[in-house]
């Protein structure tokens, strides 16, 4: 938990800073929006974290979001599928995407960067091809289904919590349990640090890596469903573009190392929250939007530097402890 202090501090700083500058920041309405977006981006970032923990990368998350989102409304509105059938179908598609990534990376020994870069192009193209590049949307239909993305549940104090938050929390808790309380989570962390040693310890490293890519694409698919339901209008060429970078940035900001073997789910959520609060703060404080990339880039860099410094101090302490531990 100590490792998260840096990023959590950054989060608190931006939060308090914005709150002091603008009273509207703390309005229930704004906070609802904030947690709503954090949930959607958080879900895909958790997926990214699993792959990053194995020392891999998934650049196709955004395109998966786009393909799944486009397919969902296309199946529902153009093909007249029932909601459960369409949901199952798009989740199956994202599962297949993850499976093929995993197989290509482990069995064909291709580099994750290359495989998922091709995926980025391929799924975007597929989304545009299937939908004939026409904007998709639900109109005023499927309001019931759309409630999972835009609905809110009233809790005490008049604060209505978006339904997507519960979905994200559910996924996050499951992911945290998987990562910290099951042997498979331990195996993922182990193989991310040293795949050879993990294999020598009897871990089926290929299967674990495939699992990570499947989880990542599956959560990308869940994200795609929620994004499309939330936005209502979906452009196959644009939905989810660059979201893989947001997801990777959030994961790294949250303490995942691109070298693998490191990362916590809570950290990823905080990392996502930092990004969302930043975007929100830029709007709320009326900072011109063309500055936003510069600001966000700077803050991520600052966060990563702070994290690295904290880690270095921790390592030094450990080393000292190790030396003094020996007689």
């Amino acid at each position: 938990m100590k490792k998260l202090l840096g990023i959590f501090g950054l989060f608190v700083f931006i939060f308090v800073f914005t709150a002091l500058r603008s009273p509207n920041f703390l309005s229930a309405y704004n906070l609802q929006n904030l947690v709503g977006w954090t949930s959607l981006f958080g879900i895909i970032s958790i997926g990214a974290a699993f792959v990053i923990i194995t020392g891999g990368i998934d650049l196709s998350i955004g395109s998966t979001v786009g393909l799944v989102g486009s397919l969902l409304s296309w199946l529902l509105m153009h093909k007249g599928w029932s909601e459960p059938a369409a949901l199952l179908a798009v989740l199956a598609v994202s599962l297949l995407i993850g499976l093929s990534h995993g197989l290509l990376i482990t069995k064909m020994r291709l580099q994750p960067f290359v495989v998922t870069l091709c995926g980025l192009l391929l799924y975007r193209g597929l989304a545009r091809f299937v939908t004939d590049d026409e904007s998709q949307g639900f109109g005023s239909a499927h309001d019931g289904l759309r409630r999972i993305a835009i609905g809110k549940l009233d809790v005490v104090g008049g604060f209505a919590v978006p339904v997507s938050v519960f979905i994200m929390v559910g996924i996050a808790v499951a992911a945290a349990i998987f990562l910290n309380r099951t042997i498979w989570g331990r195996y993922l962390l182990a193989l991310g640090r040293n795949e050879t040693a993990a294999r020598y310890s009897g871990i089926n490293t290929d299967r674990m890596k495939i699992t990570a890519y499947v989880i990542c694409s599956l959560l990308g698919g869940v994200g795609g469903i929620l994004f499309s339901l939330n936005l209502n209008s979906i452009q196959p060429s644009g939905l989810g573009e660059f979201y893989e970078l947001y997801a990777i940035a959030a994961a790294v900001l949250g303490g995942c190392s691109l070298r693998g073997g490191e990362g916590t789910i809570l950290g990823v959520i905080i990392g996502t929250a930092v990004m969302r609060v930043l975007y929100n703060a830029i709007n709320i404080l009326g900072i011109p939007t063309h500055l936003e990339f510069a600001i966000i880039g700077t803050v991520i860099l600052a966060g990563v530097i702070a994290d690295e410094l904290v880690k270095r101090i921790a390592t030094k302490r450990r080393a000292v402890r190790a030396l003094s531990g020996e007689p």
Partner: peptide
């Protein structure tokens, strides 16, 4: 501005109402 990201477009509208 939102750079054609629909989610950004929606968030911009939300943030406008909030601020």
């Amino acid at each position: 501005t939102d750079n054609f990201d629909y989610a950004r477009a929606k968030a911009n509208a939300q943030d406008a109402m909030a601020s």
